[in-house]
Amino acid sequence: MTVIFDLDDTLYAEMEFVRSAYREIARKHGRELLGPMLDAPSPREAFDSTGLPIGELLPIYRNHFPDIRLPWQSLYTLASLKNRGHRLGIITDGRSLTQRNKIRALGLERFMEEELIFISEEVGCDKISGWSFERVMELCGEGERYMYVGDNPMKDFVPGNRLGWETVCLINGAKGENLFSQDFSLVAKENRPKCCVDSLTQLLGFDSLKKL
C-alpha cells in the first residue's frame, strides 16, 4: 500500500515549529521578546508583541531551520510501515524552503520516497486541487491501494475521498494545539475522513497495513 501523510499537526505538532521560530526571533532581536511571544494566543499576536515590523519577522519565521523532533508515535509508525514494505510519502501545503527544512529537521527523508514528497509551492497547486494525489497514483500504479493521513477536515480528505483512497484523520495529534479546527460539523459529509485515530500507532492495526 502507498501511505501518504500530511506534515503539520499530523507527523508532528506545528506549534513546535512556531515556538522554534519565536526562539530564533528572540536570538536575533533580544531574549526579552521570547516570554511575551510564548504567552501570545496566536502567531499574529506574538509578532505584534515584539513591536518589530512584520517584514523583519516573517523571513525568520519562514526560513529558519527549526529545532523540532519527530514524536515517538510518528517515528515508530513510519519505521514499522516502511519495514512492512509500504511506500511512504508526504503531500503538504506551504512554502518549499519552510517545509523542506521541517522535513530535514524531523529526519523524514529516511522514511519517505523523494518522488512521493509534494509541497504546494513546488508543484504549483494546493492539496485540495487533487493534482498531487493524482500524480502519486500515476507513479505507483493503478493496481495499488492508497491511504492519506491528515488532520484538517476542511481540506485534507477531499481529493482522497474523490479518488477512492482510504482517508484517516488524526484527532488531536497536536495535543490541543492544532492550528486548524477539527470540527467535522463544518464540512460536508462527503469530505470527511473514512475513519479517525487518536494516535498514528493505531494505523499499524489496520488490516490494509499489515505486512505485505
Rank of each mutant, 00 (worst) to 15 (best):
P41Y: 07
S42C: 01
R84D: 05
L58W: 10
T2A: 08
L170V: 11
R87S: 14
E121V: 04
V187H: 05
R23Q: 07
A46L: 06
G107E: 03
Q99R: 11
F118L: 05
R95H: 06
W165P: 03
I91R: 03
L58S: 06
Q99W: 02
V123I: 15
M1W: 00
F133T: 01
F118A: 08
R31S: 10
G30P: 02
F111A: 05
I91V: 11
G143L: 10
L186F: 06
E166N: 15
L106H: 04
S199L: 03
K155T: 14
R145S: 14
I117H: 05
V18K: 03
G55R: 12
I54C: 03
G55N: 12
T98Q: 14
V149Y: 02
D198F: 08
F5D: 03
L212C: 03
L170C: 01
F157T: 00
N178E: 14
N152G: 07
L200T: 00
P36E: 00
C195W: 02
R62C: 06
C196M: 11
E14N: 13
I171A: 13
E113M: 09
I119A: 11
E177S: 10
R44P: 02
I25Q: 07
T10C: 14
G94E: 02
R62A: 07
T10A: 11
R162S: 14
N172A: 09
E109W: 04
T50H: 05
N101Y: 04
K211H: 11
L163T: 00
L78I: 05
V187C: 11
R23G: 01
E109C: 01
F118K: 04
L97F: 00
G173L: 05
C140L: 04
M137Y: 08
P66W: 07
E166L: 15
C195H: 03
V123M: 01
P41Q: 08
G176C: 08
E138L: 12
R100F: 00
F180K: 15
D183Q: 06
I60C: 00
Y12F: 15
R110K: 15
I54N: 11
M147W: 09
T98F: 00
N83Y: 09
R192D: 03
R192K: 15
S96D: 10
S80R: 14
D6S: 11
E121M: 08
N172L: 10
I91N: 04
I54V: 13
P41R: 08
I117T: 07
T92C: 12
I4S: 08
A188T: 01
H29E: 10
K102P: 03
A40C: 11
N172R: 11
G55W: 05
E115D: 15
L106M: 06
F180H: 15
D93W: 01
R87G: 12
S74A: 15
G85Q: 07
L106W: 04
E32Q: 04
G160C: 09
G55K: 13
M137A: 14
A79E: 12
S20Q: 04
E45Q: 15
L33K: 13
F118V: 00
T10Y: 04
W72S: 13
